[in-house]
Design a protein around this nucleic acid. Structure first.
Lengths: 160, 160
DNA sequence: GGACGGCTACTCGGATATCGCTTGTCCGAGTAAATGCGG
DNA sequence: CCGCATTTACTCGGACAAGCGATATCCGAGTAGCCGTCC
């Protein structure tokens, strides 16, 4: 199991947009240059964020992407769901109903698969932890552990 | 992000081995027949469980796999780690140090990446939830929600 | 000088290739049981 | 009838392909600003 690296790209991009502010859209080219990422592929990830309503896109010169909501209204879960899709990591294939179980009555499987339920419990814990953290939290933590980072990024952004 | 389906196979296989008991090894062929799975590929997953020390393998006739520990000593995390590998789902590529950050001093990155830390927090919640559930719990839950399942499986196993 | 029309350059957006990992299969090494033979 | 050597069949184990999704790239559609021209 491995998350798409687009998740990391999207999170850093959102943080950069939060730093720059929502007065102006940030084009894909600048986001890609800021982290040395392939611009076209990063654009693909940002499109996913736009489809999910996390960012808004404006075409044409001076266009780009900007956060659609306030940072405290954007959770890590939102971003992750936008990039990875809404489905669970563990997908029960109901193999209990195959083979030996194929001859059992349909009522035997009225209760959900216990294994799937257990995996879902863990996944809910993961999702809850992700939903509990917002982009504003990330920003605040960064200001605490690396106070110069935001200013450096803003300075670079203004001069390029 | 999607877990290998081998995870589901391995969990059901472990549950079956717990039902049958550790008096006798269960060959891959029977496990595969029980759930209509491709035998050779299932064998590959069981090998991973053996490497992780979750099951022991005995070759030759009457050979197969059996649980290496008591069910209450086998957590879902153990099985998942054996199949999926021990690495985190989110792998920080330190893209903060690329592009704009490349010119920053090395001391700027003494603190771990905040985004990676946030993702790790969520992942730890997931792992904790998985480690809290053992194969014995799964078995007990199944006895509660589908009491006939274990007996049906044992009956089928004895006659095939 | 001001306003309008056309042009240019820059943006997103989706269609299109390439790569790596998951999935799937195969055959060989080893072992325990079964079997046949000799005592 | 009993014990032993041989054969046999069955198991795991790792090496070898195929399929599919993630990764990466390219080109077209659309728009905002700019420039030249006309009034």
């Amino acid at each position: 199991m491995r998350l798409n690296e687009g998740v990391e790209w999207a999170l850093h991009s959102c943080l950069l947009m939060a730093w720059v502010g929502d007065q102006q859209p940030v084009p894909t080219a600048k986001l890609a240059a800021a982290f040395e990422l392939p611009p076209a592929y990063l654009n693909k990830q940002l499109q996913a964020l736009a489809r999910a309503g996390i960012v808004t896109s404006t075409p044409g010169p001076k266009g780009g992407f900007q956060l659609a909501r306030q940072p405290q209204e954007i959770t890590l879960m939102d971003v992750l769901s936008a990039i990875e899709g809404p489905e669970d990591a563990f997908r029960c294939q109901e193999i209990r109903q195959r083979g030996v179980g194929a001859s059992a009555s349909e009522a035997s499987f009225a209760e959900p698969c216990v294994i799937a339920a257990a995996m879902r419990t863990a996944e809910l814990a993961w999702r809850r932890a992700l939903s509990a953290q917002t982009l504003a939290d990330i920003r605040a933590d960064t200001d605490r552990s690396a106070p110069q980072a935001a200013e450096m990024m803003r300075g670079w952004y203004a001069t390029h």
